[in-house]
């Protein structure tokens, strides 16, 4: 059973790694977009999937990361990829400031507040706050990233850059899941009164979950800015947040394979059915409704963590 899953993962990874050679520029670019969304959705998965906080404003953190990179690159000429940690840090800081007062809100209340935040950020960007965001037109002329002196420009090059970061994200988040921290988030999701009663500082962990999610969304913002070379407020609207929310719910809350599959379905499938234009959204909506009724835990819900019960406590590497 477990071995079978590993074979599926390996085949999938091999196919994915070879795909730029088999696909044209358009489809490679679709995979790049999917890659970005995988990373974003995995970061939201920490907040929504693991900790169970209904956060529908993730695009706000994505925007902070993208604009940080764009502004610092175009004004100070700092290399794009070096701005990744800065963007992550600023997005995390932003999350810390806005999440602190709302962290105790439950479910639907938190949802509404986070929707408010993402709209505030978008409108602030449109209105060119501090005169640095370029208003509705956004910012253009962002540099291409450079890796070891090589300028990344073709979709295939971007493919490997983006999916490299996706791989790092999966690796680190997998470790994060299998730890005291990951468990604490799950306890809070299951029952926060019992979690506090077991000695877990629930407010602290909720906040850290928010910050980690935001830092990663900030990293994604850098990649997005570098890939597009032009960013505008409309890239970070409410609908983006809804899509990410849907990916996590559809794929399986708290499950890395689930979130990846969810991203392929939510972002990739509509591309396949482009000729059906608006009808595809209809089907899409119907599928969502069906899922929520018949499989509310998502397509690939997380497996229970495995532990070695012979005394040595190395959690087994089961994703």
């Amino acid at each position: 059973m477990k071995n079978k899953r590993w074979i599926v993962y390996l085949v999938f990874t091999a196919l994915l790694m070879a795909s730029p050679a088999m696909l044209n520029r358009y489809w490679t670019d679709v995979l790049n977009v999917v890659g970005l969304y995988v990373m974003l959705a995995l970061s939201l998965n920490i907040i929504l999937g693991h900790c169970g906080m209904f956060h529908m404003g993730h695009a706000a953190f994505y925007a902070v990361g993208a604009y940080t990179t764009a502004i610092l690159n175009t004004t100070c000429n700092l290399p794009v990829l070096w701005l990744m940690p800065v963007s992550g840090l600023l997005a995390g800081l932003f999350a810390l400031v806005i999440a602190r007062p709302i962290i105790h809100l439950r479910g639907d209340y938190l949802l509404i507040v986070t929707i408010g935040f993402v709209e505030i950020v978008r409108i602030a960007l449109i209105n060119n706050v501090f005169g640095i965001t370029g208003g509705a037109n956004g910012i253009f002329g962002i540099d291409r990233p450079t890796v070891f002196g090589m300028k990344i420009r073709t979709p295939a090059q971007f493919f490997y850059l983006i999916w490299f970061f996706v791989a790092v994200t999966i690796f680190l988040f997998h470790k994060l899941e299998h730890s005291r921290f990951g468990r604490a988030l799950n306890y809070i999701r299951e029952d926060d009164v019992a979690a506090a009663g077991s000695g877990i500082d629930t407010a602290h962990y909720k906040l850290i979950a928010f910050v980690i999610g935001a830092v990663w969304a900030g990293f994604c913002g850098t990649l997005f800015a570098a890939k597009m070379t032009i960013i505008a407020p409309e890239s970070f609207n409410f609908w983006e947040s809804v899509l990410l929310f849907m990916i996590v719910l559809l794929g399986g809350r708290g499950s890395i394979p689930g979130v990846i599959l969810g991203t392929f379905l939510v972002i990739g499938l509509p591309e396949l059915f482009r000729q059906f234009a608006t009808a595809r959204m209809l089907v899409f909506g119907a599928v969502m409704i069906g899922m929520m009724i018949f499989r509310p835990e998502g397509i690939l819900p997380p497996q229970p963590r495995a532990y070695r019960l012979d005394g040595s406590a190395e959690p087994e590497e089961a994703a």
């Binding site: 470790k175 994060l176 299998h178 730890s179 005291r180 921290f181 990951g182 468990r183 604490a184 799950n186 306890y187 299951e190 029952d191 019992a194 979690a195 077991s198 000695g199 877990i200 850290i208 980690i212 229970p304 963590r305 532990y307 019960l309």
Partner: peptide, 25 residues
């Protein structure tokens, strides 16, 4: 924590005697 294993339920109790955070994880 109904959806978690019995072992992980008990590990919740161990939480407050442990130190490692997100980065160490």
């Amino acid at each position: 924590f109904q959806k978690l294993t019995a072992l992980e339920n008990v590990l919740a109790g161990c939480h407050c005697r442990m130190k490692s955070g997100s980065i160490a994880a």
